[in-house]
Amino acid sequence: MRFGKIDYLNLLPFETFVRAYPKPSHFQLFYNKKKSYPAKLNREFLFGRIDAGFVSSITALRARRERFWASQVGIVARKEVLSVICLPKEKGEDYQSATSNALLKVLGLKGRVLIGDRALVEVLKQKSNHQKDYVDLGKFWVKKEHLPFVFGRLCVKKNHSFYKKLFIL
């Protein structure tokens, strides 16, 4: 029952759901044990160190080949996200998110990606200085493709029936 958890503000609705939903005590023990950033959880999941968790949508594409279940529950952007941004004047990739780095390339943008709390801090800092020198990747994708962008999906390797019952009603 090792669950990999992304500890970012944009997963607060999921966190609220899990806390309110009745669950076995053995799941609760492991739910808060493996907290990390998305790229590390991808590796942990693929190497079998966690049984379930939110992994990048790119990793979820391997579901059939790698023999795991990718659910329809995900982290989806339909408008402005503010927790996944590109700083056009800087260079470099974000070590925390493979999906966001790939999205930057697909959109044809140049710059440095920031995700999670670091992105929110940067946005708030720029707003307090009355400037906007960043590109919101979720908003940019929707504007360009007219589709929501799926950053990550809940994937399961072991205990499929338990997770299906818990997360998919």
Rank of each mutant, 00 (worst) to 15 (best):
G4M: 10
D7A: 13
D7I: 10
D7Q: 15
Y8A: 03
L11M: 06
F14Y: 08
F14T: 00
R19F: 06
K23C: 04
S25K: 05
F27T: 06
N32I: 08
K34V: 10
S36L: 07
Y37V: 15
P38I: 07
K40A: 14
N42Q: 06
E44F: 07
I50C: 02
A52C: 09
A52S: 15
F54I: 10
S56Q: 08
T59S: 05
A60T: 09
R65Q: 02
E66M: 07
W69P: 03
A70N: 09
S71P: 04
S71M: 12
Q72A: 02
I75Y: 05
V76Y: 13
R78G: 14
K79I: 07
K79E: 13
E80R: 13
V81R: 01
L82H: 13
P88Q: 14
K89L: 10
K91S: 07
Q96W: 10
S97K: 04
A98E: 12
S100H: 14
S100I: 07
N101P: 08
N101T: 01
A102P: 06
L103F: 08
G108P: 08
G108I: 10
G108M: 12
L109P: 00
K110V: 03
K110C: 04
G111C: 13
I115F: 04
E122F: 11
E122V: 14
K125Y: 15
K125T: 07
Q126S: 11
K127Q: 15
D133S: 12
D133L: 10
D136I: 00
L137Y: 01
G138Y: 05
G138S: 05
K139A: 15
K139C: 10
F140K: 09
V142M: 11
K144D: 14
L147I: 07
F149C: 11
V156N: 00
V156H: 02
K157R: 13
K158Y: 11
K165T: 14
I168T: 15
